[in-house]
């Protein structure tokens, strides 16, 4: 019983969903365009950054609107904040460790 997200009538809700769907279509197209575009340099670094940036926007839309995260309770935010922090720790520290070897290490 989520009092905070009452869909008052179905029609306006369908309209909102249609908008979100269109936006998702646009971001997906933008990702594909970025992937095949010649303007983002020859290497992959810049391209990956742009594409993942768009993916994050896309994810924000899904989490924020479809999962109602924008109007969720503080408790859920707290749990997710810790999770994201630990996820960043896992990936970040592992990457750091894998890039940080004593001078002279040939293979790892």
């Amino acid at each position: 019983m989520s009092e905070s997200e009452q869909p008052v009538d179905l029609k306006s809700y369908i309209r909102l969903c249609a908008v979100i769907f269109l936006v998702v279509l646009c971001t997906t197209s933008a990702m594909i365009a970025a992937s095949f575009s010649d303007h983002l340099g020859s290497g992959w670094t810049g391209r990956v950054t742009v594409i993942l940036g768009i993916a994050v926007i896309n994810a924000f839309l899904v989490a924020g609107y479809l999962m109602h995260l924008l109007s969720e309770k503080k408790l859920v935010y707290t749990v997710l904040c810790f999770t994201v922090f630990f996820f960043i720790g896992l990936m970040g520290l592992t990457l750091w460790a894998m890039g940080n070897f004593p001078v002279g290490t040939i293979n790892h």
């Binding site: 997906t28 990702m31 992937s35 594409i51 993942l52 768009i54 993916a55 896309n58 994810a59 899904v62 989490a63 999962m67």
Partner: peptide, 8 residues
């Protein structure tokens, strides 16, 4: 959401 990252 997972697929949104898997795809790119």
């Amino acid at each position: 959401l997972v697929w949104i990252f898997l795809f790119p």
